[in-house]
Structure formats: C-alpha cells, structure tokens
Design a protein around this nucleic acid. Structure first.
Length: 431
RNA sequence: GGAGGGGUGGCAGAGCGGACGAAUGCGACGGUCUUGAAAACCGUUGAGGGGCGACCCUCCGGGGGUUCGAAUCCCCCCCCCUCCGCCA
C-alpha cells in the first residue's frame, strides 16, 4: 500500500509517479476524495464520542451521590447522541473499507531510478556475461532442447508427471532429481554466510497473501484450498515477508536477512498455451529465495547485494546471462525497482528469466504492518523489504543441461555442483 | 475431533460494570551519588489516528451484542496450555 498521507499532501507527485506505470489514476482520485470525506465524518464522530464519554462520567458521579433523576436525564441525552454516533460509525466504516480496498489495488510508486517504458522491450540491459545469444558461439551439440536431453538421459519424466498431476507439472529422476536438489543446496550454501535459513509453511492464510501484494488483485494466479481457505504460496517471499508481520523491529536487528527453499505454486492462468513444453513454465517448482528487511537508507546497498549474490550463482554454474533494469511499465505491482536476471538457454534458443530482484520500498511493509524503531528515538517507521530469487530450479536446470551438453550427449557437471554428486562429474544415460 | 483451563503494556502479572490506557514487579532510558562500575534513590517509558494548537478519538486475541458507561457481562470465531482420541 502506498501511504494515504502522501496522497493527501502530495497528490500531484503521487499521481505523476503512478502515471509512469501507465495505469489510470481513477482509483487514486477516489482515494483522495474518500479520504477527505472520511476525516470530516470521523472528526464529527469523535466529537460525539467525547461528549458521550463526558456524560457517562457525570452519570457515574450523580448516581453515586444518589441524584437519580438528574442521572436519568443525562442518560437519555447520551442515548440520543449514541444513535447519531451509530449512524456516523456506519458511514466511517463504509468509507474506510472502500478506501482500503482501493488502496490494496493501487500499485507501488516506481523508484525515480527505474527507467521509463511501457513494455518488456523497454527494459534496459545493464550487464551481459558469457557468450551471449550469437549463434556462432554455440556448438551443434548444445542446440538440443532440455526436454529431449532429459528424456534421452532418463533424468526428466514429464509424461508420468502429467499422468499424476496434469499438464505443466514435472518430475525429475535419478541424476536429474539430484541436480534439482544440488542446485538448491548450492544456493543455500552460497548465501549461508549472511542469511538465516528458514523452512516456512508453504500453505498460508489470506492475510499472508495480501501482505506481499499477491491478493486481492492476483487471486487467479494462485492455488486456493477452498475448504480451509488457504493458499499455496507462489514464492517463499510470501511467508518470509509475513514473518515479521505486525512487529516492531529494533534498528539493531536491521538489515535482517532470510533465505528459504520452498516449493512454489503458480496457476499460470494468463499464459495458457505459452511455453507448454518442458520446464519453461510449470505449476510447481522449487526455488531458493533470499529476502531482507531494512531501514530505508540501507535499501539501495542491499538491493545491489541481492543482485550480486544471485548473479554470482548463475555465473558459477557457467551459464550465459544478462541483467535487465525493468522499466516502469514492466515492473511488478508491489515493486519500486526490479532487476531481472535472464539466462540464455541454447537448446531452446531463448533468454529465460531466472531471477527477479526487487525493492518494494515500504509498500509491502505497510500492508504487513512491519515497522522498526531507531535506537533512542520515539515513534516507529515502516521497514523496507527486498527480495530476489537466488535460484529457481526448472529454468536453471534446463539451462545447465543445455549449456553443458557434450558432443557425446552426456552432461559435464559444473565444478560448483560436484560436492553434491557423490563423486560423479557428469551425467550419462543409464544402460 | 472430545473435555477442561487461559489470552491484559517489551516481559511477568493484577484488575472482572464507573476516577482503568490500565496496579505492582522486572526490563529499558535519563539523572543524583561514585575515580569507574554495581547498589541505592528520583524521574521517564505502549501503539495508531485527527487537529496550527489547548486537546480529542481508538486499541486489554478478533468480530458482534447489552449498557448512559465494557478489559470487566452475553454470543460467535481464532490462538495457546493440559488430558483423551487419531496420526507422519
């Protein structure tokens, strides 16, 4: 949520910032008008409440002194005021519920540093590492899609996954399953110097989904367990962000760094028919997420750190990648600024988004009510939240397999993965 | 799932219709004393909202109700603890 007070005091700037995303300002305008109305009605209601409180006190005194008649007169007066108050209470409730609902639908203000633009094509490439997508840079044996490689080597069993769970579910087998697990383990080990490992629940309450911004706007993208009104998380960002919900953190605790490996569930409702083959777009996948709570002045450095950590990992796997600074039109709803890491997968000849490293300013913190107190100071401020995928398994799995495929069809394992492979250095077809 | 007990400020814990945003203790912060520290003593110390301000409003797990007035009474829900059942 953006701060209502900013809408109140700085409307034009807020409106201009949101306009950079390309949306309509209707909701914003409604919030501004409702807020003015709300404060008027609330002030009137508070006045009446104050009066009722004062009268009740008098009644107490009068009754104690045995002045029953006077007390009864006061009570009657208070009853009348109470009725008026009830009416006003209904009005304020309606207005504030409406305001909150609108506010929950308004996206975050983009950072001033985020590049302007309307579509993904306007994203700015800020780094490119490896051989790139130049056809000449890749050998013929690397031009095999991972689904063929996986099937040939017996390490990917999509057919049976579909039998159990339907389209866009996956199953790794043998060395393929080991590779999946090794990638996660590598990501956790790589960040264990500064991040606390967490194993959160993967099924959460509605409020938990609201805190990160995944609800109410994007309900169609998530799996909902109706009977218990629970949601399967689309990313560990959801539980990790709610970890500190409704808490006031000490400045000394910040920045607070957390990481978690979880299954992630996505309905992919809007992308039916796209990337249906292989591992490019699936309903369930494993991911290691890194996340931080920070004071505002720490956020920029942390954002750079999260990006650097995600990048190092991809680089260590010997993959070719590029980093994009997302333009305002392509930014996620809750994000103020996002860097995407895209890996080049030679077999499918595509750039695959494998990591999204985002800074949410205080947008999620306000939804989740996560504050901090500066040491020695009174009052509280909203924390800033940041997160990024350290490693998302299926797409990285695909890129590793395609990139490191040898002329004889085997896969040479990158050195960083060797500790997790029980002595093996390559993946070959079982006889 | 069944029976019983409980949810109050950073923590512990009283209050069970009116002077209670809440005793008391601990903790934290500031001060006195001390070469320094400890102890002792004095003071301060929850959050959110509105108003230029005096000040006002809300919050005692959540929601609803009774009442002139609710932390306190009634109803529903959630969570925690103990016992039983079931169970990876």
């Amino acid at each position: 949520m953006i701060d209502v007070r900013r809408i109140r005091t700085d409307y034009d700037a807020v409106r201009a910032a949101l306009a950079r995303r390309g949306g309509s300002p209707d909701e914003l305008e409604q919030v501004r008008d409702l807020d003015i109305e709300l404060r008027e009605v609330t002030a009137e209601r508070d006045r009446i409440r104050a009066e009722v409180n004062a009268i009740s006190k008098e009644v107490g005194t009068l009754r104690r002194d045995g002045r029953t008649e006077e007390a009864e007169a006061k009570q009657a007066e208070s009853r009348r005021l109470g009725e008026r108050e009830k009416e006003l209470a209904e009005v304020t409730e309606t207005i504030s519920a409406r305001t909150r609902d609108l506010l929950l639908h308004i996206p975050n203000l983009p950072s001033e540093d985020a590049p302007d633009g309307a579509h993904a094509e306007d994203n700015v490439e800020i780094a490119r590492v490896g051989v790139g997508d130049d056809p000449a840079a890749w050998a013929e044996h690397q031009r095999v899609p991972h689904w063929d490689i996986g099937t040939d080597l017996g390490i990917l069993d999509l057919e049976r996954a579909v039998k159990m769970s339907g389209a866009m579910f996956t199953m790794f087998r043998g060395a393929g399953a080991t590779l999946s697990r090794a990638l996660c383990q590598l990501a956790l080990d790589h960040n264990s110097d500064a991040f606390e490992e967490v194993r959160p629940p993967t099924v959460v309450l509605t409020d938990t989904m609201i805190s990160t911004g995944h609800l109410p706007k994007f309900a169609d993208d998530a799996y909902h367990l109706e009977r218990d009104d629970l949601w399967a998380i689309p990313t560990a960002e959801v539980p990790l962000t709610s970890l500190a919900r409704d808490e006031i953190l000490d400045a000394a605790q910040l920045p607070m760094r957390l990481m978690a490996q979880t299954a992630c569930f996505r309905r992919e409702a809007g992308s039916a028919g796209r990337d249906t083959r292989g591992l490019l777009r699936v309903h369930e996948f494993d991911k290691v997420e890194i996340l931080a709570y920070a004071m505002p002045e720490q956020a920029a450095d942390l954002h750079a750190e999260l990006l650097r950590r995600a990048e190092t990992l991809i680089g260590a796997l010997g993959l070719t990648y590029r980093v994009l600074d997302l333009c305002t039109g392509d930014l996620g709803n809750s994000s103020a600024r996002t860097f995407d890491i895209e890996v080049y997968a030679p077999g499918v000849d595509q750039w695959l988004e494998v990591s999204s490293v985002s800074w949410f300013s205080d947008y999620q913190a306000r939804r989740a009510n996560i504050r901090f107190r500066r040491t020695g100071e009174k009052g509280t401020e909203m924390v800033h939240t940041l997160n990024g995928s350290a490693l998302a398994v299926p797409r990285v799995w695909a890129a590793v397999v395609e990139t490191h495929r040898q002329p004889d069809g085997s896969i040479r394992l990158p050195e960083v993965l060797l500790p997790y492979f029980r002595g093996a250095t390559e993946i070959r077809a079982a006889d």
